[in-house]
């Protein structure tokens, strides 16, 4: 059973990769750009999934970490002329430290209280950006003139070039996050989502793991912010509002909280479907709201739900053999 799921997953990823590689041959620039934003949202949704899906922490302010990363990259690039891709580690570290600092006092809060606090944090960050905090963020207009990324001396500027850059990052992320899911860290997060008291009793330092989940998720969102800044060359506070956090939250929940393929499907659907139904521009949000309500009644676990890891016969036998 498990082996079959793994094979199916591998086939799915292979097909998706083939589609992305071949996409510039049959899609126009507009749809390539849609694919680029799908890639960015997949990254963001996966990073939120660490916090919301794996650790079960209701974070509805994820756009704040995204913003911190994007602004870090933009400020380093425009003020200190650091090549944009070289700011990736800086964005990751700044976003992670920021997340750890703001999450430290609130991670112990009960589910929906944490939700509200993170909404508040997200809004405070947005207002701070609009008010040109420390004179660095450029106020409501944001920061412009961010330079294009260079990869091995090759300047990336056209949609299909960004397509490869962004989706390469997605591929690395998916690989790493699958490994993380299987690791001690990933299993500890799942444990504390299912039962924090039992997890604590089994020696999982819940406060520390929650903070780590926040920091790691924020680091990834921060790096995605760098990619976003590089792609847009202009960033402004309105790209990081409450609605952005809600959309990310929905991608995780509707796709299948805690499940990597589920979250990817969620992100793809939430970005692509509104593009397909562009003709019904004003009614599509109405339908979106309705779908959310119906989904929670019909399929609350999401489209491709997460399945708990189970020990198989072969695992037991292998364990017996090695001891």
């Amino acid at each position: 059973m498990a082996a079959r799921t793994t094979t199916r997953l591998a086939v799915g990823y292979a097909l998706a990769a083939a589609f992305i590689v071949a996409a510039p041959r049959f899609l126009d620039a507009y749809w390539l750009d849609v694919l680029n934003s799908v890639g960015l949202y997949v990254l963001l949704a996966l990073s939120l999934n660490l916090i919301l899906g794996d650790a079960g922490l209701f974070n509805m302010g994820h756009a704040a970490f995204y913003a911190v990363g994007a602004y870090t990259a933009a400020i380093l690039n425009t003020r200190y002329q650091i090549p944009i891709l070289w700011t990736l580690p800086a964005s990751a570290v700044v976003a992670a430290v920021f997340a750890a600092l703001v999450a430290r006092p609130v991670v112990h809060l009960r589910g929906d209280y944490l939700l509200v606090v993170t909404i508040g944090l997200g809004e405070i960050v947005r207002i701070a950006l609009v008010n040109d905090v420390f004179g660095l963020t450029g106020g409501a207009n944001g920061i412009f003139g961010i330079s294009r990324p260079m990869v091995f001396g090759y300047k990336i500027r056209r949609p299909h070039e960004f397509l490869y850059l962004i989706w390469a990052f997605v591929a690395v992320t998916v690989l790493l996050f699958h490994r993380l899911e299987q690791s001690r860290f990933g299993r500890a997060l799942n444990y504390l989502r299912e039962d924090p008291v039992a997890a604590e009793g089994s020696g999982v330092n819940t406060a520390r793991y929650r903070l780590l989940a926040f920091a790691l998720g924020a680091a990834w969102a921060g790096m995605t912010g760098t990619l976003y800044a590089a792609k847009m060359t202009i960033i402004s506070p309105e790209s990081f509002g409450f609605w952005e956090s809600v959309v990310l939250f929905l991608m995780v929940i509707l796709g299948g909280s805690g499940s990597i393929p589920g979250v990817i499907v969620g992100a793809v659907l939430v970005v692509v479907l509104p593009e397909v139904f562009r003709g019904f521009a004003s009614a599509r949000m109405l339908v979106f709201g309705l779908v959310m309500m119906v989904m929670m009644v019909v399929r609350p676990q999401g489209l491709l739900p997460f399945r708990l890891l189970r020990f198989k016969e072969s695992d037991v036998r292998r364990a017996g053999a090695s001891s």
């Binding site: 809600v246 929905l250 929940i253 949000m285 109405l286 709201g289 779908v291 959310m292 309500m293 929670m296």
Partner: peptide, 15 residues
């Protein structure tokens, strides 16, 4: 689930 449904209701009513 209830939180998501509430958000959905909010989006629906607003639009």
């Amino acid at each position: 689930s209830a939180v998501v449904s509430a958000l959905g209701a909010s989006i629906f009513l607003q639009n």
